[in-house]
Design a protein around this nucleic acid. Sequence first.
RNA 1: GGGCGCAUAGCUCAGUUGGCUAGAGCGCUGCCGUCACAUGGCAGAGGUCACAGGUUCGAGUCCUGUUGCGCCCA
Length: 1085
Amino acid sequence: MSKAYDPKSSEPKAWERWTSAGAFNADPQRVVDGEARPYSILIPPPNVTAALHLGHALNNTIQDILTRAHRMMGYETLWMPGTDHAGIATQTMVDKKLKAEGKGGIAEYKKKELAGENGREEFVKLVQEFKDEYEARITHQLQTMGCSCDWRRQRFTMDDICARAVREAFFRLFRDGLIYRGKRLVNWDPVTQTALADDEVEMEEVKGAFYYLRYPMVKTVDGDQTIPVTWSELGARGYPDAHQHPEDEQAWVTVATTRPETYLGDTAVAMNPKDPRATSVRGFNVMLPLVGRIIPIIEDEYVVLPVKFGGEEGDAKAEMSTGFLKVTPAHDPNDYMIGQRHNLAQINVMAPDASISDQHGWEDVGDAQVFLGKSREDARKLVVKEFQARSVSEGSEGSLLEAIKPHVHSVGHSYRSHVPVEPYLSDQWYCKVSDDKLRGNAQRALKPEQRTEPSLKGWPDSRPKTQAPDSTDGSMTFYPARYAKTYETWHDNLRDWCISRQLWWGHRIPVWHIQPKGDYKESDLQDALDALADSQGCRGELCVRMIADHELASMRAFGVCTHTERAEDLMKNLWLALPNSEDKPLNRPDLFGSTGNSLESVLKVKSMIHSMQQDPDVLDTWFSSALWPLSTMGWPDTDAANSGNEPVDDFDALLKAFNPTSVLTTAREIITLWVSRMTMFNRYFLAQDKVHDKPPFKDVFIHAMIQDGEGRKMSKSLGNGVDPLDIIETHGADAMRFTLCQMTTQTQDVRMPVEPDPETGKNTSPKFDIGRNLCNKLWNASRFAMSMLEKNPVRPGPPIDPQQLSLVDRWMLSRVAHAQGAIGSALRSYQFKDYADALYDLLWRDFCDWYLESIKPTLSEDENQPAVLRSVLDSILRLMHPVTPFITESVFERLDSIPSREILGVSVMETKSTETLCQSGWPNLDPSLRDEIAEEGYDRCRALVSAIREVRASNQVPPKRSIVLHAPGELGSDVKRWNPLVETLANVREVTDSAPEGASVAFVFEGSEYKLSDLADAVDSGAQRERLEKELADLDKSISALEGRLNNPGYTQKAPAHLVDQTRAELTQKKVDRDSVRASLDSLG
RNA sequence: GGGCGCAUAGCUCAGUUGGCUAGAGCGCUGCCGUCACAUGGCAGAGGUCACAGGUUCGAGUCCUGUUGCGCCCA
């Protein structure tokens, strides 16, 4: 074995051993047959947009630690790997890449598609290639890190098995009325031209302005709506300040807006009913400049009163408000709500690219055609310019633009294209997550102790319905517990989920839109299609729903959702067969077979369809992510999953064995996006299947976020990101894993100082040295131990009774037992730092610093000691394996061939194989090995050694010099009984009862004075005095503290008796110590 | 604006029901080329536990408030 541990040579070999042994393969049948308990984890599928970063490394290290530990504990263990197609993110990446390569980007392919070519298909193929590349890279990264996933089962959210789950889920929700079509304001990204979910919008501070615009006031006389209202008229009606304006001039209202360009779509001006001006303007309208649209002045509580008229002073909104609010229902979410309340028209004045357009619902353009075709930015400038140039009415003073005040406000930006999001009215698909069948199930999943009163009060139905230990409700627990609140609050304010995206990369929505010919009901079309489906062998695989209801039959629309590929083909064929002209017969009768029955059905359906179109949109990425616990397990059709080209065909047992999973390990930012939705879907669908009604995981562990040394997020743009592969290259995978494990505390952020590696220039962190050093320590300790075992082989024999062992051996076994317990409880409570610290202390402090040093001289004489050494090293390797799998596997391979002998109480848990360390058992140390007496005895010995070492150091005694300990009485006989521990560890040549003859140095131990001699040729009495005086000062300080405590009657009366006794004993001891130190000082003269 | 978190040694962090003379690693100082490991050993210095009140016999820990930093959601 080499002197220093070399991860580069060990890691690939260990990996090879695991994979050839099939060490990571899970066998669901063993669980179903009751041979083993299940332990399963689903990987949060990384996006295929980029290589993994340190946050992924942390998350996956944690999952691997849990997986490996439970595998060794005898659980049938599944860690399911996979990646996410990350719809918009990936599509954008590919678009950018194409543009960077000088190609046209997605726009080119959109043109092709419009021209009737396969632009969409070609583009998706390119994305597929991109995905393949990154998927391979991510897989490589995870494997290099040592992730013990069952790689045979690797999934991708868009592969066939996942696609089947998506189709099934969509169909059922559609059928059950939980998916609907809605015209809503969405967060529209004008660059990628897609709707964004609320959580895909990032708020950014923007330096903008409040623009104060004047709208002339008009009234209706004899049907003419454009008659100006004058100030004097308003004044007569009690309008405050009306007299400040010229009497006969036209009055106006001033609205304040940050987005003047949206005025084109205004359909009302609103004011608060409490506004003192409300009565005087009631019944009047205003006329939009240039557009000429007459819009009403309405009253709504939403409007903030200006300070002048009762608004709160200091409230920024009240300070800015004029009391009049322009209402643009089609371009602002709040205005949309007002519009709903007052039944206002929604006028969309923009094209999908956010340029001003009269092609998307705006008709009364009037003089505003100057704005057509302008981008929203240009339109804003132009609106300001036009308003500035005009006045309220001809000849009146002042322009329509009253003022511009700078204003910093936060604006939603697309997380992909980073442009401001445009609230945009469009038709989208929604999932009714606010339904109790979904929301309620997610709320009820939470452990009752983690629910809070306000939420339970707000949602009385969300109280858990069942409470048995294995119950369906209340069985999901968050670690750390505080994150339960994030989860809970999210559901309290849940809005329906917009699930459609105007993208090409994703699961296409399996719906055909049908415009009906004639006036008929949903069920009529359903019946006709059922008959057709029947004739085509796909009965029941189509579901019809009204998706747009309108008084006019011609404006109605039906959605036909297809349940299967077959049904999809049927609809496609129907579309192909429909002739352009209504009266012509089918142009492709061949598509439906030749039976008269089918032809009749086709003709019937055809007669009902005016036009049909496949929905062009795809589903939000999170829709397939939400199905991850189901799709990875082959749901809904395990038979179909088995028949694919999968390397394993045990899907039928998979779901039964491993859903619900044991724990989900993830970052806090996706508690809402992902955890919640998986919970809803898992419970909803599996309950329908009568499988179970459980949440998809028992525990949810939320790990910390890694920030750089300055507390900033790691990101590409800041250049502070760290690539796990770089760390593995310089430090080794185990070193990285150990450091990450040790950093994983229960706080929400952890910091990792980042600096460039002086050699490679790549980002690294000194933190990883900790892990590297630990591995090196393990390597050398093992090397040393094994060489000693070669020289002093374990002799065969019956099991050793620990009671027969020497003090240090019993102590070491006790420490291992202690560590095993600490590690077990750390794992159960997801306290990963505690795990790492327990390993560090066990290996470095206990085993290396004390045990190995202690046994050096005795190993050859003590016939039991080699067996203990062998056994302890074995246990340490096993306990360390989940954190540092590679090095422990390498060492274990060598240790395994060294003979061993059983020690009573030391065993390993049973596993299905012992071929590698990875597969073999977790240490099982009987609690009786925790030996208080040995720990106390050895601790005394160590304390004495430390005291002697301190004397040696303060007197500058060279380490090589052997000295003499003068220890009469009890201590002397103890030291002799411990022989040769003190002698070895403190380099003492001789222990004697006699007093020193020559120069000596005194030290105090347990209240008595002892002496050391032969320290050097001359003893430095100054150093001794200094040391003793410091010791005296420390003692005085603690004595006065203890006395102070005991002199406090409150303490002696109220504190627990054992504590008071303890304090008294401590005080007595300290006083004795002090006397001895004083005596030593006196004798120094 | 709402929610959550953090503030302890020069740095990164532990400190789980209040009982502590407040710990670890790195860094720092001194000694050590020793036959497992210098990616190491031994010894040492270093802290008004952000601030101000309160509860208690006793507060780093619990409560209230203040300040600063960070994250999430509007």
